[in-house]
């Protein structure tokens, strides 16, 4: 038992942090700036970070859930506005199905409440949405057939929707037909995939919390009222301390969930990830609300980054289900579910 990051994992964190700190938006006005996002996208593409869950010759992932989580966390911390979660989940789905690698940038499609992967029974796609669709022309979903659920791909429409300013969702284009590829996705496969998705959204939330606490701590140290920095007042200090502590608890459950993706039986991996998601989703909303409160009136304006963190947190919470949904999974895992 040694849950410290390895030297290689620490180096990965540092290199992701470097890219994010240099190329991710530092102000609301920079979000969506095409020149900057294309540089960020190119840097991410050349590093191969979106391909970590593709299969090797044996069908094993190129890297574990821990490495993928490190990247997700840094993207959340820096509000990276290029896709990562979607393409990573698409790669995992291809690996589990034993399907060939895609030529085009792709993400995955979810039910419109984002609680689970899109499973199309009859080609009706109107109730589905492609998540984290920035730069992606295709989305993977499951086609239900009498002999199982199979991976299929559809076009992503170019319209962008959703609450997260850094990771737009997109509606799906109308498919000619759903062509299944690879072998059928088993229940165990889907659990493994869900465990990865839960753990990556947790990692994104941990990063968001870290970024929001840093933003608020910096602001509280510089903003003055009554002749003193507001961060010197105990009322402010206690809110920010609580936010930091919630982030630390979240980090501990998330590390475990990330490790569990590949180390435990899929059922236990989902159990670990559900504990983590329940904890992180509840914590992240509290922490982002604290960030808005610490910024006062400014925190309630569009120009303040605090709501960008909150919006991103709300999206990451909803993907695979938020606190309540995850608590239901926890209860089931412990044999006391409804």
């Amino acid at each position: 038992m040694d849950v410290r990051l390895s030297t290689e994992q620490q180096a990965l964190r540092e290199s992701v942090a470097r890219v994010v700190d240099q190329l991710a938006p530092h102000a609301v006005g920079e979000i969506g700036n095409a020149e900057r996002t294309s540089k960020l996208d190119a840097a991410v593409a050349s590093s191969g970070w979106r391909e970590l869950r593709l299969g090797d010759d044996q069908g094993d992932p190129l890297a574990t859930g821990v490495e993928a989580g490190i990247i997700a966390e840094e993207f959340g911390r820096g509000l990276a506005d290029v896709s990562f979660l979607g393409p990573t989940m698409a790669a995992e789905l291809r690996r589990l199905a034993g399907a060939a690698q895609s030529e085009s940038a792709e993400t995955v499609a979810f039910t419109s409440d984002l609680s689970s992967i899109a499973i199309a029974a009859d080609g009706q796609l109107s109730s589905f949405v492609a998540i984290d669709a920035s730069g992606c022309s295709r989305a993977l979903l499951l086609a239900a057939r009498s002999d199982g659920n199979f991976l299929a791909e559809v076009d992503v429409a170019s319209d962008e929707v959703g609450l997260d300013l850094t990771r737009p969702s997109s509606t799906l284009g109308s498919p000619a037909s759903l062509e299944p590829s690879g072998r059928s996705i088993s229940d165990d496969d889907l659990m493994r995939w869900t465990a990865l998705g839960l753990s990556l959204t947790c990692a994104d939330l941990v990063g968001i919390m870290q970024g929001a606490v840093q933003l608020s701590t910096d602001y509280a140290s510089q903003r003055r009222q009554y002749g003193a920095p507001i961060g010197s007042f105990q009322a402010m200090q206690h809110m920010l301390a609580d936010a930091f502590v919630m982030m630390e608890g979240s980090r501990s459950v998330t590390l475990h969930a990330a490790w569990a993706v590949d180390a435990l039986h899929p059922r236990d991996a989902v159990g670990a990830a559900s504990v983590a998601k329940a904890y992180c989703a509840r914590a992240a909303r509290d922490v982002c609300e604290t960030a808005i409160q610490v910024h006062g009136g400014i925190g309630n304006t569009w120009e303040c980054l605090a709501h960008v963190y909150l919006r991103r947190a709300l999206l990451s919470s909803d993907i695979f289900g938020g606190a309540g949904n995850s608590l239901d999974r926890v209860l089931q895992h412990y044999g006391i579910g409804a």
């Binding site: 040694d2 849950v3 410290r4 608890g249 501990s252 459950v253 504990v275 904890y279 209860l331 006391i336």
Partner: peptide, 29 residues
Amino acid sequence: EDQVRDLGWAIVEVEMLRLHVRRRLSDRL
């Protein structure tokens, strides 16, 4: 249901603490 959910949150918290302690004691290496 509300009683079971109270227990559910306690399960989540205790599991968090167990894992947090693993992290802290690993750092002692």
